[in-house]
Amino acid sequence: MTTAPHPPDPEPAVEPTVEPAVEPEAHDDGPPPAGPLANLGAGLVTLALGVGGVVVSLALGVGTPAQPGSGMWPLVVSVGLVVLSLAQLVVGRAGGDGERFTRHSWMPLVGLATLLGLVALLPVIGFEIPSLLLSLVWMRFLGGESWRTSVVCSLGAVVALYLVFVAALGTNVPHLF
């Protein structure tokens, strides 16, 4: 039985619940675990931070245990960090936790770039325009929504933000309008 073709309804933004019963979360396995190289990298980064901390702490002046200087506590913590990082490098040799970067990993990077852009533009032209742009990028390009949904929802979001933060609460967020 054929039905007359009709244009599909544009997807509503809110999906109605389909099933009444509890559905166990579709257990996707996640990206492949980060290999030993990633664990090594992570361990080295924290080790470097720890060593840096030790250096700075010593420069601050450690004092004596009875009269601790301002560098004493950071030194203790940094040494702890170094020790733990070394332990992690040993223990984590086999890899096995964490995740590998996938081919979609550029998306968070773009997201991060838009966020930094917002921070840069915020004091200059207020939050409305950067927020609108960010939202458009995220919805349309990173999220794959249609132009209409993206524009409508972005505008709605910015207006709502304005109403809440500026009109209702009277906060001091930089705003153009």
Binding site: G126, L176, F177
Partner: peptide, 19 residues
């Protein structure tokens, strides 16, 4: 959304607080 956008633009007359 369109109405909201128009409303937002008219608020431009209110003046912002950006340097």
């Amino acid at each position: 959304g369109a109405t909201a956008a128009v409303a937002a633009l008219t608020l431009a007359a209110c003046g912002g607080n950006v340097a």
